[in-house]
Design a protein around this nucleic acid. Structure first.
Lengths: 241, 241
DNA sequence: GGTTTTTGTGTAATTTTTACGCAAAGATAA
DNA sequence: TTATCTTTGCGTAAAAATTACACAAAAACC
């Protein structure tokens, strides 16, 4: 199949892919969605068969309006997860000349945050699976590196944007929120100071608690108060921890 | 020249370019290096001839180790300016399907900071020129957009890294440093508070001033104290203004 | 010598951040 | 039923950082 192709260029062109780091949070740990690599019908050859990898795939030159559209389309095809283009944040370009053994492939990595509970059901479990952040298997290509960079990007973004809320269910407790921040920022906060700061920012609204029993004292439930957050953000605000 | 090419692929491939936003600072204003577009021997057709644009060009698939190497190589070829791969920071990918009228081209934008005085001489003035940030001409392609994003990235990075110092000469005055920060952050600071904060951070060392006359009172000269900055940065520090 | 521009300097008031202890809610075990 | 354990909620005092603010010295120009 040496000259099976029909797309001809005067100069060599690289292949371009979009890869997706999809983060979830189960109330306890940060999670990442990975796929098991199989044979890919579109690629001229398939590499790393049977290994775990980030979901992603090739830019469709004549169809994908932007590389983020590639990310959204491939994520849907490979995991069943349906996200919009706006859900993806660009992490960066990975372009090492030999990062793919088949041909020159540069990839634009993206990350996305999902409410885990609400998407677990719609995920195609045959090919995809969620892994705890502290228990990630070895990944194909340079996907380990991409994952690390994506995490550091998330870690940075959380200072400026309410990314935490994209990972939590609509209704959540203060301890859950704090644990999430601690997981991402890899630090511990004083519970009282954390609550004070949140109260000061006024970006949470208390939910009429239907007293949902648990193992200990029932925590108060909150909802994210988007209006207030947007107002704060508009005036050059930044969430600090 | 419809089928002049000799590079054949089974699926369509995009062209990939690296574009460079090179910032300089003349002690008064932020500047950007632009080139005047001419005929490009490498491209199958040339677009936007005669217009100003960001320096940049096509990834050489078999030669450029990473896309940052493309940026460095093209900057050198187009402007004469010789920077290392490490001098470039990635801004992001611009991949709109019709951003280049010739074919599908996605570009990875980068920015770099240079000590203006020391590079002005080595810049190829026939093709390249420095423009004040507040006096940028209309640019080819989507380069206006790239420029805006690059600036906002610089604005963000200056909180975490001593980027200011890359734009200043080795030896500089406190008012110069303040003016630079004000230009990038688009705010005004109180002179005394700015000086106090800098003193508190202890990242400047006073230089034995050879009393270099000027228009008014001779300002004290400083040099950036890298050791102290690195130490601070290592312990999770961040430059705030 | 007077005028103008630019630079350097310190302190008090305010705001933000940090540190810290105890009581109530709910579950489980004795 | 009571004791015990874990988890949650709450407020204040000390420390640190940020802000606001005024005057004198250096140099150039007239």
């Amino acid at each position: 199949m040496a000259t099976k192709g029909k797309y001809i260029y005067e100069y060599p062109h690289p292949a371009v892919t979009a890869d997706c780091v999809v983060f979830g949070y189960d109330g306890k740990e940060l999670k990442v969605l990975l796929i098991k690599r199989g044979k890919e019908p579109e690629a001229s050859a398939t590499a790393y068969v049977g290994e775990w990898a980030l979901p992603g795939g090739f830019l469709e030159v004549e169809k994908d309006k932007t590389i983020a559209h590639t990310a959204a389309r491939e994520l849907k095809e490979e995991t069943g997860l349906r996200l919009t283009v706006k859900d993806f944040k660009e992490v960066g370009t990975f372009s090492d000349i030999h990062r793919d053994p088949r041909e020159r492939v540069i990839t634009i990595a993206h990350y996305a945050l999902v409410k885990l509970a609400q998407v677990e059901a719609s995920t195609d479990a045959d090919r995809a699976d969620w892994f705890s952040w502290n228990d990630i298997p070895h990944l194909a290509f340079d996907h380990d590196k991409i994952l690390r960079v994506a995490f550091s990007r998330l870690k940075r973004d959380i200072h400026f944007e309410p990314v935490g809320f994209d990972l939590l269910p609509e209704v959540f407790t203060l301890p859950q929120l704090q644990n999430l921040y601690e997981s991402i920022l890899e630090v511990k906060f004083d519970r009282r100071n954390f609550a004070n700061k949140m109260k000061h920012y006024a970006i949470l609204t208390e939910v009429e608690s239907p007293t949902p029993r648990r193992g200990t004292r029932t925590p108060v439930l909150y909802r994210f108060y988007k209006e207030n957050y947007d107002r704060l953000k508009g005036s050059g605000f930044q969430l600090e921890f």
